[in-house]
Design a protein around this nucleic acid. Structure first.
Length: 480
RNA sequence: CGGGGCGUGGCUCAGCCUGGUUAGAGCGCCUGCUUCGGGAGCAGGAGGCCGGUGGUUCGAAUCCACUCGCCCCGACCA
């Protein structure tokens, strides 16, 4: 039992990076495509994404957003309209220069994000204050020519949603950006069971062309932070560049205020890393492709009875849960146990002659791997109860880890020591000076991940690096 | 993009240093029988232009050059 069953995969605790890519391949979430930096999201991985889409999309709709779809290609001239934006994305844009054998008059960028093409359309659609707000989201793929790639965490092409909204004033845009930030936090904590911090990005780290960038940051088991989602108040930067103007109630012409925000398939990567263990994946019940697996156990003479009872059980549960009945005969029960554990199915039901005779069932939680014997008739209640408990406890575990690895050093020396030995987040008073930020980066490789949303009182406190009066609390960490 | 490592059946690898008939193992896969409450057993079987290109040689998985891909560690990013 204590012996490691998954062969050929390093222990998560020994080598997170290796474990991560091996488990993705073994659990068939994704596979490497024959092009550099690209992957195929296989059915098991895509099912998680579909669950993420379904749950998030519902929240977007509830808050007044609608979906649309904009083109994959962006003419070079459009991409260049907002100066900061181009500068930020230029190194990682893929270009189309030919249509068939004809050289194009103007190169087309494969969208690295869609601000420019969407803003070009918005400038046609926005005329009056009555046209506002525009609250559009799109589910799409984008391409960024990254140098270093990792499945789900950073690939050349990835799937995401990007919301793009237009408002009549700063306050409305700001409110939108923060509403979305809350949706992201709530979603990641409740559905993906990952503890996150929310905060604002520093000038250096903010989105190219944004006024404010807000972020949702999660801590991975190796102590590195992962940006799990971002929400930007774009101010009027894009409106000015793309000429998005409207006439307000007082008949004066105003530039519009905008936001954009997104989360990507990176969330799947975060979930894999945060919850998995040496036996494989642990997928939070709320997004698991299969929430329950039924494994029948039988000797040949019991076969038909057990299969029959198993099917009955399956039929009872199939309308309430995503469930699979693994009646394959070419594998032994023990093999199936390990296989489904590796694939991260949160709950397993074992049914065999003994259970049928005793009118009972064995349930096994993926996270604790504890066997629980229950009355046959309690199965609906118990399934619901256990899935909820697993979901909750996965989050509590993530929360505990994140909080235990968030530290408050007294001075710069201690901060450097913590970043070197313990990793995780360090929260320190900060002067808002980029020089100090760069110094920390140089000496510790850590960057400012965010300034927390809940403003802390820093009066009388001094910047941990330079000793000048502090403006805010900053959370530093090494990051993905 | 710099430093390091690795490419040999589906997977993990041996063979390479010191070139020489038919390229090996374990796992997986296929067939059959027996099994089945934590990765079952036996018997038989299929599957490989040794990442690619070029060179050296009578002869290359093995030596040389180039190239592509993947992983790890650093500089940039969801």
């Amino acid at each position: 039992m204590e012996e490691k069953l998954i062969k050929e995969i390093p222990k998560k605790s020994d080598n997170l990076a290796q474990w991560y890519i091996e488990i993705i391949k073994r659990a068939e979430l994704a596979d490497y495509a024959p092009m550099k930096g690209m992957m195929v999201i296989r059915p098991s991985g895509y099912a998680i994404w579909e669950n993420i889409q379904r749950l998030l999309d519902k929240k977007f709709k509830e808050t007044g957003h609608t979906n649309a779809y904009f083109p994959l290609f962006i003419p070079e001239s459009l991409l260049h309209k907002e100066a900061e934006h181009v500068k930020g994305f230029a190194p990682e844009v893929a270009w189309v220069a030919y249509g068939g054998s004809e050289k194009l008059q103007e190169k087309l960028a494969v969208r690295p994000t869609s601000e420019s093409i969407i803003c070009a359309m918005y400038s046609k659609w926005v005329h009056s204050w009555r046209d506002l707000p525009i609250l559009i989201n799109q589910w799409a793929n984008v391409v960024r020519w990254e140098k270093v790639t990792r499945p789900f965490l950073r690939t050349t092409e990835f799937l995401w949603q990007e919301g793009h909204t237009v408002h009549a004033n700063y306050e409305d845009a700001q409110k939108e950006a923060l509403t979305i930030l809350d949706i992201y936090k709530d979603f990641i904590e409740k559905e993906l069971a990952i503890k996150v911090y929310t905060g604002e990005k520093s000038e250096r780290e903010k989105f190219a062309g944004a006024l404010h960038t807000y972020t949702v940051e999660a801590l991975m088991p190796d102590g590195k932070a992962l940006q799990a989602g971002t929400s930007h108040n774009l101010g009027q930067n894009f409106a000015k560049a793309f000429d998005i103007k409207f006439e307000d109630r007082n008949q004066s012409l105003k530039y519009a205020w905008q936001t954009s925000w997104g989360v990507s398939t990176r969330l799947i990567g975060a979930s894999i890393m945060v919850h998995g263990d040496d036996e494989g994946l642990i997928i939070p019940p709320r997004v698991a492709p299969y929430q329950v697996v039924i494994v029948p156990i039988f000797k040949m003479k019991d076969r038909s009875t057990v299969i029959e009872e198993g099917e009955k059980l399956y039929n009872e549960l199939k309308n309430s849960y995503r469930i699979i009945f693994d009646s394959r005969e070419e594998y032994t029960p023990g093999w199936k146990f390990s296989d489904w554990e590796m694939r991260g199915v949160p709950l397993r039901i074992e049914i065999g002659p003994r259970d049928i005779k005793e009118n009972s069932l064995i349930l096994v939680r993926r996270d604790t791997r504890k066997k629980i014997k229950i009355k046959r008739e309690a199965i609906l209640d118990k399934t619901s109860l256990l899935l909820n408990e697993i979901q909750k406890e996965l989050f509590l575990k993530s929360k505990k880890f994140t909080e235990e690895n968030t530290r408050y050093p007294k001075d710069y020396e201690e901060m450097k020591e913590l970043l070197k030995t313990k990793k995780g987040f360090v929260a320190v008073p900060w002067c808002n000076n980029e020089e100090c930020e760069l110094k920390v980066k140089e000496e510790t490789k850590a960057t400012i991940r965010f300034f927390p949303m809940e403003e802390e009182d820093v009066s009388g406190k001094k910047c941990v690096v330079c000793g000048k009066p502090a403006h805010r609390i900053a959370y530093f960490a090494r990051s993905y």
